[in-house]
Design a protein around this nucleic acid. Sequence first.
DNA 1: GAGCACTGC
Length: 682
Amino acid sequence: MAFWKPGTIAPGTSLDRETEKETNEALVTFVDRGTSLSIQQQRKRLPIYKSRDQILYLIEKYQTTIIVGHTGCGKTTQIPQYLNEAGWAANGYVVACTQPRRVAATTVADRVATEMNVKLGEEVGYSIRFEECYSPTKTRIKYMTDGMLFRETFTDPLLTQYSVIMIDEAHERSLYTDVLLGILKKILKKRPELRIIVSSATLDAEAFYEYFNTNTTNDSEKDNASIISLEGKMFPVDIHYSKTPCSDYVEASIQTVFDIHVQQPFGDILVFLTGRDEIDFAVGEISERATTLPRSAMKILPLPIYAGLQLEQQLQIFEPAPYNTRKVIVATNIAEASITLEGIVYVIDCGFVKLRAHNPKTGMESLVVTPISKASAQQRAGRAGRVGTGKTYRLYTEDSFYKLNDASIPEIQRSNLAQVVLHLKALGIDNVLRFDFLTPPPAELMIRSLELLYSLKALDDHGRLTMPLGMQLAEFPVDPMLGKILLDSYKFQCGEEMLSIAAMLSVQDVFIIPSNSEIDVDEEKRKFTVEEGDHITLLNVFNAFITRGKKSARWCHEHCLNFRTLSRALSIRQHLKKYLDRFEVPIESCGNDTVKIRKCLISGYFSQAAKMMPDGSFRTVRDNVILYVHPSSVLFTRNASWVIFHEVVETTKAFMRDLTVIDPSWLAELAPHFYEFKKSEK
DNA sequence: GAGCACTGC
């Protein structure tokens, strides 16, 4: 076991995820055993090696194999190599392994290339958005995000180049994982030689098995799916429950931090809370109360981590703490799977998470603090058992733990499904309501999406994809409403502007949230602000970044802009432009003609229009739903009688985000079909 | 008149 010496950089510490950790752990083991062992000998010492032959046998025999394995068993790095060694990647075939996150795909590929002693991008490669690193002829093992494999079904609906497809981390049930599982189940019928591996942490394994095993007879010889469990390497974690339910979990978590600090031996603490507000408050309180600790006591260093933080602040959590200081990392769910921290011995779990929900009746998204699932609670607890025996303090009673759902509601059951529906239609799956999902989304979600797509003219009266509009929207890697404004932009000579706006709408957190109040973000924001609203303000920010800002991090910092976010917007813009070029949509610039830009926005967002009431609130034109301007909008402090909006987020109220002022007559001019359609409905 | 869980193409 590797010991970490205070004052040195902890081994394997990085902004990474579970599977990367898996490789790091393997790496640490190798180093410990000395340099005398070859990589091949080292691979044989991994726990999974004992199951190698059995895994290969099951894959040979069954079309689908469900692999249940904890972190650290080596499944992600080893199974594709076993398959390659067994000849599954011969004759030009490729073994694919999907990951829900980008970093995982790249780092695992890198590790496997090292183990195989090949150059990354040749025999072993990866494919993520904006970054393809593989050879169409040489690559045998390809790691990729699940979203990328999903995309590949457009060009090759039967995924014919792959002999085996491993869907890793399937228990996370990402939107793309679920859609892929459905598509793969269909492909299996047409390609009996194809093999699927579904790898999952624990609880859902049986559900995957039931889904893929289509044998309805009692004869198990006819099964076409099987399950295998692998042993992992985790240290035991003691679980402590609250004796009574707590009314204020933020306060309870702060208390628990100090209880641990005073009573328990050295070791860092990880606290799970639900959002930025709670985290900032807790970090502040811990700092303050720490001043009352006796001078002789060990010091305490609280640090926040959530996605909205700037990179430099995020990296602070990986810095070793000063001598005689205990780190307390206060995190959102980002620390549950996306980021792995070394040195955590104690976990405090508040039992809640903030989740997005989608209301199909209103089309509104909401962010709601929800109780976590048992699977989540176990995952959080496991974070304490990485370096040695750990302890987890659950701020809820044992009774309430047993009442939690086994797993959280899959993303596909609480998302806007317009893109999924379009994609399935593009694959020739006409009756999407009957599509065999692992867990079908509610019918209302599907119907709402179908209505939207019909109003955008992506579907015809028979629910079939229109040509070329529907097919192009299906291929476009953006929300269909956004896709529509891009495809229509030539009519308003504003393709250049729309590409920038669409890219900016695809990213979040453009403006920085400063940790201190020295810099006035609002003041900086005003420099870009225009009275027409947020879309054109975003366009100004993007243009300034490219021209005056020369794409520099320093310029961004001076103007309270998030450099990472803007760079990402630039990549997305280039990506979207490639699609417009391929669709042969002429791209012009309208200069400063904001009327053209705003009219173009209406061509996609006509259904999301709202009118101001005398009290300052808004009513949607479509359903007369009450909405408010989000405080992040430049229109929050201004008056506008008619607006269109990008999205609605329901927190304390239903807020519209990203608004643009319009003239109501444009609605009738640009979307007569929709407003007449609404009238006839009434 | 006051707010931003996390991914991904």
